[in-house]
Design a protein around this nucleic acid. Sequence first.
DNA 1: TCAAAAGTGTTATCCTTACACCCATGT
DNA 2: ACATGGGTGTAAGGATAACACTTTTGA
Lengths: 333, 333
Amino acid sequence: MVENGLGPGRPPIEIGLSAAIVAIDGDKPAILVVERAGTLPALPSGPFDPLSHRTLEIGLRAWVEAQTALKIGYVEQLYTFGDRGRHARFSDRGPHEVSVGYLALTRIPKSSARDVGADAAFTPWYDFFPWEDWRGDRPGVLDELILPELRSWAADTPTRHEANRGLERRERLRLCFGEDGMPWDEERALERYELLYDAGLVEEAARDGRERGLKRFGAGAAPALGRPMQHDHRRILATAISRLRGKLKYRPVVFELMAEAFTLTELQRTMEAAAGRHVHKQNFRRLVENSALVEPTGGTTLRTGGRPAQLFRFRRDVLKERPAPGLRLGGRG
Amino acid sequence: MVENGLGPGRPPIEIGLSAAIVAIDGDKPAILVVERAGTLPALPSGPFDPLSHRTLEIGLRAWVEAQTALKIGYVEQLYTFGDRGRHARFSDRGPHEVSVGYLALTRIPKSSARDVGADAAFTPWYDFFPWEDWRGDRPGVLDELILPELRSWAADTPTRHEANRGLERRERLRLCFGEDGMPWDEERALERYELLYDAGLVEEAARDGRERGLKRFGAGAAPALGRPMQHDHRRILATAISRLRGKLKYRPVVFELMAEAFTLTELQRTMEAAAGRHVHKQNFRRLVENSALVEPTGGTTLRTGGRPAQLFRFRRDVLKERPAPGLRLGGRG
DNA sequence: TCAAAAGTGTTATCCTTACACCCATGT
DNA sequence: ACATGGGTGTAAGGATAACACTTTTGA
């Protein structure tokens, strides 16, 4: 251990900045991931250097803009994790890393390919969280794999702990996955991921040295539980999804994901893609119109097929007019 | 610069953990501040040592529990700031500090004094933000000082910048302070503090090397703009206030601030103390009863004066029953 | 008997939800 | 003509906001 002015014995700390950069590709929410042969996919990330950048966000923006061909507009800090994986291994060599996660919203660049920079590409986020997409049928993996496993995990009260730990497990399960009577809450994406982690059902848990779950189905079933990522990046992504799903309801952030002009149905598809569920068409439209968030451009488009659709644009003025503009997604569609 | 394994030239980084520890003392929201003779008040804070503590939150808890006689229950991460003050001075000696702010909720210890540890004491938070308490009259400092200053600041378009900066200033002012027609939104406490900072009206701004505002009233008026704190601690406190005011509306966190048994009026006073405004009594009571968040203990108390009041306790089960329990504060009282 | 605070009943309004039907285009 | 998606009207139910009045204690 070198002397570094922090007092004796304290290891050097590095701040890692990671960005979950979200764009919507038609009806697929996608995030920008860096993927090199032989390694797990990762979020774009890099170290914070306070000499070059005054704030963390400036550091992150500079870093993203240098690495990708993307202009990111909206950026929001998510959370700061002090442990690399969940179980930091203290014996690891090198500086300890504290990671600050960010959510960024952008548009898919129009250039033919979805690729943005050397090894970076937009990838559907439900590849990483197959159980989060409820737009079609209820995701099969829930009943085929996740819930049976979690139920047995919940029933299996861990030894050496208080007896009511079993109850807590059951309660978490009910709340997160909408068991008996509880509704599915799309905003709990992070809690669901963390529950699966604690139950040893995602790759990252095994990698971090936890007991592997999947007793009944065997390790072969793991791919159905979503692609793993490097470090804690899937946790950051889950945080991003939860935050975005929540924020869509009370701040007009969808428009960061839309082109300049769009149809109401495209707007709805975008909301639904992110929320992972359908909403009621008429109610959505009235909601949008009452909100005064958009105005017609005057033009129409045929690109959606069927009857020509009116084009709208975001009215940036609402930010000045109304205190907390947003679009609440109502009930199920 | 010593070699520290981070590559050449990158300075060492230290993580500072700071806690805004909130308790309600009757009708006064208070935070725990450390105050030594000759120094500005500060939040309890200390460095993160990854060798001793696996996560940031564990580090923070250990640190607070070692320093104060307090058991803190509820803890929530607020934000991570990469700059010490707003304008980090790169020439500063010593490691660069990144500060992670936390919100903690607790009860005022019953022990006679409000003091908790050597130099620590609970202090009314409106001492730091006099313009945030709208429970009595509209705070006088707004019309006497803040708004006149801010209006002239907004009118005074800065040179060397685009002309429409002036508009932006006006818009921020309208939104944050409820000018012409906009309602006062108690959740914007952080935005208000940051606006005052940008306008050079709080001490911290001058300290960080910004041009001082207060042209019209002179520097003598500064005390009316709240007590300054060390570093960016007042910014962290403003973040805590905003977050708490928001969270009270959709999560049952008030109960972290209440004694085991309480009357409905005490509950209301607590909400109002934090929110900085009054709410409608009957509607509040019905809201609470419909929410099923509390149950009668059976007992009554005379401590509130007048007719004896029923005592209630928090029903911890609701956390298991309802997906997102909380208490929306309705309109003005 | 009066002050102080607890506690209740009722109505108007708005927002949310849900339902079912018509319209304009390309094939 | 028909399939496809765009676009609308309306009614039921629940939540919210605002109103004023009665009850029980201590002084």
